[in-house]
Lab assay of single mutants.
Amino acid sequence: MALNTPQITPTKKITVRAIGEELPRGDYQRCPQCDMLFSLPEINSHQSAYCPRCQAKIRDGRDWSLTRLAAMAFTMLLLMPFAWGEPLLHIWLLGIRIDANVMQGIWQMTKQGDAITGSMVFFCVIGAPLILVTSIAYLWFGNRLGMNLRPVLLMLERLKEWVMLDIYLVGIGVASIKVQDYAHIQAGVGLFSFVALVILTTVTLSHLNVEELWERFYPQRPATRRDEKLRVCLGCHFTGYPDQRGRCPRCHIPLRLRRRHSLQKCWAALLASIVLLLPANLLPISIIYLNGGRQEDTILSGIMSLASSNIAVAGIVFIASILVPFTKVIVMFTLLLSIHFKCQQGLRTRILLLRMVTWIGRWSMLDLFVISLTMSLINRDQILAFTMGPAAFYFGAAVILTILAVEWLDSRLLWDAHESGNARFDD
């Protein structure tokens, strides 16, 4: 018995066209964080690309023209004298008006014999932002004059995390709450300039795509075929072959399989920071003279006294001054041990922890910024005066060393310790 099946006739004509040209192939790229070699397709503007294995951002879609970056830099340069030299806060102490600005706080630190601690604050609040705007201006002028731009481009990517104007702005709020127990506070004209400078700096850093600047100024022929001998440069993120001198053909720094002496430098910085954190938390970090009496505060006791007036601000200072430094030390110690013992479990967790400490590390400088600003506000000789204690130097040095330890660690070593050939990683 035959089955009668109805015929289905399409209502619209289906047209099949042959592909007349070869589909576009992607360029081969190595991930600078996990060293995976993959094919990167062509990316349009405002599109980002991520590593298929570790999800690290390979290409950032946010990109401004150099002219727009230069305009932002010149605007920031105009704001800087007002943000640093004009009063941020006014207080009335014992019937006398006192003005506080950024430069005055750094000068008070240096004047009291601790120039190293003052230079830490100076670099993060004044030096690094000033280098940022002058570097962008150098790129703008240098591109037109045919100057060598490689050193500036190499420095810009590392400079971003040292620009800490946003953290200093939080420190202004913390210092205001600490001082309000002794005097009446009012915002100064410099505060508005400083807030504007923070906003412009944040926007500029978020749109400063150094890798795209490398592509514009020093374009290189990408690798179009897969080759395990391809290496990625950690300076400019170019994937290719080393030249005859073993250097990256684009930025001219040595092109090595792994960062040289990464573990040794990381261990040295980490152990030194552990040693410095002990006096930083045991010795007094601030000293207040009130009517001839002397009151010393460690980091913890200062947080407890701050909690009596504002528990939320005390929580912020606790996280930045105690929780973050010790968390960074514990995480980095764990990561280094996992590399030495070739741990194969929990790779995803370790990668996330490394990215976390990379982002939060700079916030530990908050305590030094609060001390710097408070020193310029309260300084009335023996009637009422505020000065920093010996722990300030140890704390600042420990924070900087932990930042350097994270920067010096080559994250690809975590993958080397893991089993080879993993296309995915999980716990």
Rank of each mutant, 00 (worst) to 15 (best):
P87H: 11
L79C: 03
K111E: 11
P219V: 14
T374N: 15
L159G: 02
F238R: 04
C124Y: 02
T402K: 06
P41S: 11
M164G: 02
G20S: 09
L23H: 11
L336S: 06
P284A: 09
A223I: 10
L384W: 02
G142T: 04
Q344K: 15
T5R: 13
Y394I: 01
E22H: 11
K12D: 08
T202V: 11
T334C: 09
S262F: 01
F395P: 00
L409C: 05
L347E: 13
K178M: 00
D99P: 04
W359G: 08
I299T: 12
Q112C: 09
H418L: 10
R150Y: 03
L156C: 11
S39M: 12
R250T: 12
I14M: 10
Q180P: 00
N310G: 06
H252I: 03
V232E: 07
W64K: 11
P390K: 07
D35P: 04
D35E: 08
V203C: 14
M388I: 06
S65L: 06
R158T: 15
V275Q: 15
Q295M: 03
V317K: 00
G127N: 03
P81Y: 11
L93M: 04
L373R: 01
C248T: 00
P279G: 04
D426A: 13
F217E: 02
V317W: 01
F238H: 08
Y168E: 09
K229Q: 09
A183G: 01
R247M: 09
I322S: 09
S273V: 07
L205F: 08
Y138N: 01
R380G: 01
R355F: 13
M76P: 04
A391T: 04
M72P: 04
L165A: 13
V399A: 13
F141Y: 01
T224N: 07
M72D: 05
V406L: 14
G292T: 06
V198P: 07
M304P: 05
L401Y: 05
R412K: 06
D114I: 08
L94C: 03
I185V: 06
G302P: 00
P249N: 11
I8W: 11
Y28L: 15
G315I: 08
L197C: 02
G118P: 04
S309T: 08
F341R: 12
C233R: 01
M375H: 10
D416E: 15
M365D: 04
I371T: 01
I330Y: 14
W359C: 12
G173E: 00
C248L: 00
I322C: 15
T358F: 10
N422C: 15
R245E: 05
W92F: 07
R348Y: 10
R231L: 06
I14A: 13
M332E: 11
L149Q: 11
L66M: 15
R221S: 08
V163C: 09
V324S: 10
M356F: 13
G146S: 03
L156E: 05
D27Y: 10
F123S: 02
S321N: 02
